[in-house]
């Protein structure tokens, strides 16, 4: 029976898409988090606990969603509906919980409510730009990238948040819009040169541009702990490979965190094979060179 369950579990794991697995983008120190004041996405448990100790019930609720306690978070939010009905932030939080739960239709629904409430309220500049930003994320997940970009741009123009810029940066990198990506990266890097993802994104831009030396420079700024992150380690390995540091590249791939994310796995595996082949070639040529050298000598 246990074997049967185990088999089912294994099959379900195999059949699940990459979307079910998340990157461990948690940042322990808020100093390294450009978006510390805007997004809970990269919060560590300790940082969540600090927030949860404060007396802001809807904020607390959304932190539970971020910690995977979606039902609990939503139930806490439900109870606040009377008080927070006209608060766009409230609806944004509900949308966020659904988004984190991968329930995109519901997420979209509530983000739209937040936006409409924000339009009505117009109390602060950031009254609905978070929702616009988050709606952009929904579109990204739905692969409606044009809509995503439009939403992020609107979020960026309507408020003073950095998060929409950050997200647009990711989007631009994804579609190799490197010039625009660089513009955003320059801005964000100036704001938080110690943010891991900001550094990593910047490095990726240079990687895609083919400027591997510069890319390497940026990867070296990343804290060692984060360097081993699945995506970063893979990208860094590319850079190292391209710069001829085959062994380092190989080591980087080996030391990188194990990943269940298929695209990363495929890329790393692919790169790994190339590195191996190259190393072998080098070995052969060195061997040949060695023999020649020996012969000459």
């Amino acid at each position: 029976m246990i074997k049967f369950i185990g088999l089912i579990f294994f099959i379900s794991l195999l059949s699940s898409s990459c979307s079910n697995f998340k990157l461990k983008t948690i940042i322990e120190n808020k100093k390294n988090d450009l978006l510390a004041g805007e997004s809970f996405l990269r919060y560590s448990t300790k940082r969540f606990e600090l927030v949860q100790s404060r007396d802001n019930s809807i904020q607390r609720a959304v932190t539970f969603c971020h910690q995977g306690k979606i039902s609990y978070g939503l139930s806490l939010l439900k109870k606040q509906i009377k008080k927070e009905r006209n608060n766009p932030i409230y609806w944004n939080h509900i949308g966020t919980c659904h988004y984190l739960n991968d329930d995109l239709p519901k997420a979209k629904y509530f983000f739209n409510i937040s936006i409409s409430k924000g339009v009505k309220a117009r109390t602060t500049l950031t009254s609905f730009s978070p929702a616009l930003n988050n709606l952009g994320l929904v579109y990204m997940k739905l692969r409606a990238y044009d809509l995503a970009l439009s939403s992020l741009k609107k979020a960026d123009s309507e408020g003073t948040l950095l998060t929409p810029k950050f997200n647009m940066l990711q989007l631009y990198i994804k579609f190799a819009q490197l010039k625009k990506a660089k513009e955003l990266s320059d801005f964000l890097y100036s704001k938080a040169p110690q943010d891991i993802d900001v550094i990593s994104s910047r490095a990726t831009i240079y990687l895609l541009k083919g400027k591997y030396k510069i890319a390497k420079k940026y990867y070296e700024k990343v804290n060692r702990k984060y360097l081993e992150r699945e995506d970063i380690s893979g990208q860094y390995a590319i850079v190292l490979f391209k710069l001829g540091f085959l062994e380092k590249a190989k080591k980087m791939l080996q030391n990188g965190q194990y990943t269940m994310i298929k695209p990363i796995k495929v890329m790393r595996d692919g790169l790994s094979i190339i590195i191996e082949r190259k190393l072998e070639l080098l070995k052969d040529s060195k061997y040949s060179e060695g023999i020649l050298a020996n012969k000459r000598s």
């Binding site: 510390a36 997004s39 978070p130 929702a131």
Partner: peptide
């Protein structure tokens, strides 16, 4: 891209969707 072939070869994919961030702290933290 310059190194398009290599990128294609290693089936490079930038997982933007894994990196994008929600905006949900109400800007106060």
């Amino acid at each position: 891209l310059k190194d398009h072939n290599f990128i294609k070869k290693i089936k490079y994919k930038y997982l933007a969707s894994k990196l994008i961030s929600t905006a949900d702290t109400e800007g106060v933290l």
